[in-house]
Design a protein around this nucleic acid. Structure first.
Length: 104
DNA sequence: ATCATGACGTACG
DNA sequence: TCGTACGCCATGA
């Protein structure tokens, strides 16, 4: 199993209506840094069934461009995640309490 | 095997 | 408080 697979497995565990940060995922999948998580998501294809939109940076905002961010925002709102005026997510409210990779 | 790159994070000015 | 600089690790050429 590659590191990406691990990352994807963890991200798939993010429940609907919750979000996680790159750093958090990196912490769960300890064999990598935050950048690797983002890089992994970048390689995700559309048919991979990965809820990439539930992963935000430490600011609680999408790291994509404006366009991607808006799309992501739309999807998340559809799942019940509310955004602030500045387009960020309230992490202390919606951040997923991820378990260790071992539990998965 | 090496070089350059990328959806991040933290420290410092 | 905001902006910039540097470090992190795995992947693809």
């Amino acid at each position: 199993m590659t590191l990406y697979e691990k990352i994807f497995l963890v991200i798939r565990e993010i429940p609907k209506g919750k979000v996680a940060t790159y750093g958090q995922v990196a912490g769960i999948v300890k064999d990598c840094g935050a950048r690797t998580v983002g890089y992994a998501l970048n390689t995700v294809k559309e048919g991979d069934q990965i809820p990439w939109y539930r992963v935000l940076n430490s600011k609680g905002k999408s790291s994509l461009g404006e366009e991607g961010a808006e799309m992501q925002k739309a999807i998340l709102e559809k799942e019940g995640v509310l955004f602030n005026q500045n387009g960020t997510v309230d992490l202390k409210t919606y951040q997923w309490e991820g378990r260790s990779f071992e539990e998965v």
